[in-house]
Write a protein that binds this DNA or RNA. Structure first.
Lengths: 187, 187
DNA sequence: ATAAAAACAGAACACAGTGTTCTGTATCAA
DNA sequence: TTGATACAGAACACTGTGTTCTGTTTTTAT
């Protein structure tokens, strides 16, 4: 890929991220992004069809990375310890989040958090399917599997959102413990 | 209140609801609402400052009613049976929802469901606080109360969303049982 | 090194949607 | 009946969008 393209794309992402941590998505104009990124109008539209597509691409880059590394994690084959404090995929995710790569925490705790939490949840579902369902770890007699997947994903995302909205004072280990406390009975 | 005002307000709500069940919120223009409601442009802006305020008022009317009736419910003072199938506030909510008053189910399962589910969750939190926290029913040694409130609210809203997205084939009783299964350990 | 190709800047444009202001009409409540 | 008020409809300025144009700079390939 052309260096110029990469440079411009990065500048747009950076500018967009900066704006998103300050203003509501719907009150950010393309002109705002252009000014912040210091590029031409034509250039923006050469890279992204609309502002919505920019958001989509940003989300895919953010969560594709985070979930991707978790996907590659070794599966835990010991059912008795899978909910322990140290080997959970969820703890891995929380630690990864704490690193705040690409300022993802600012986005997840901004006024626009719902935008990103939705993407987060969608990707999380895929992760849970690959790490739990396909390993046969999510057998439940009375509850539908997709109901469980949805519940677990939602609960984790809500946990992260709660953590961020309260100033993330707790450690990833503590937060993971909170999450496992409320979710362990079904996991 | 003037009969004309009430008539117009209802027409706007009805038109808006109809449009919301077909199109995305952000691609509904004020002109669309005006045409659907068959009113003048001035009239719309005499009733609602912007489209956002219309949405807000609609939500308040929808959820204020549902949550309001549940607020008035008698408190359950028997801790041993509070999670039983028949006396839960949650079952009451599900039964009320099933009546589909003001087409609320269409809104909650439309493309715009996230808009309404957020309002739903916010109001649910207040309900849980008044029905559980203030009755001292939500004591937990290791978990923060606001974390629990958030978890329970989110879980219920997700349960309703799942129910609707799957064609609401289950009865309120079954759905309530699903919910209580995943939430009972912390309730 | 040089020429073709591609990415860029910036201005101008048509278009759609917003919220306001105006004039005049129809409906209400007293 | 009368004064007040809700209404319809047109016109308006304004903001933001996405495109098209011209010309410049940078990259890549020969």
């Amino acid at each position: 890929m052309d260096r110029r393209q990469k440079k411009t794309r990065d500048a747009i992402f950076t500018a967009f991220t900066a704006l998103l941590s300050k203003k509501q998505y719907h009150q950010i104009s393309v002109q705002d992004i252009i000014d912040e990124a210091n590029i031409g109008r034509t250039t923006f539209y050469a890279h992204f069809e609309t502002k919505d597509f920019l958001l989509k691409d940003l989300c895919e880059e953010l969560f594709g990375h985070i979930i991707g590394t978790a996907m590659g994690l070794p599966h835990d084959h010991d059912h008795c310890t899978r909910a322990s404090k140290t080997d959970s995929v969820f703890l891995h995710l929380l630690r990864h989040l704490k690193e705040n790569d690409r300022n993802i925490l600012e986005l997840l705790s901004s006024q626009n958090n719902e935008l990103f939490l939705r993407y987060f949840k969608d990707n999380l579902k895929k992760l849970i399917i690959s790490q739990y369902v396909e390993q046969g770890k999510l057998q439940n007699k009375s509850l539908p599997t997709d109901y469980l997947i949805n519940h677990i994903s939602a609960a984790f995302v809500e946990t992260v959102a709660w953590w961020l909205s309260h100033g993330r004072n707790e450690s990833p280990e503590e937060i993971c413990q909170y999450f496992l406390s409320v979710i362990e009975p079904v996991l």
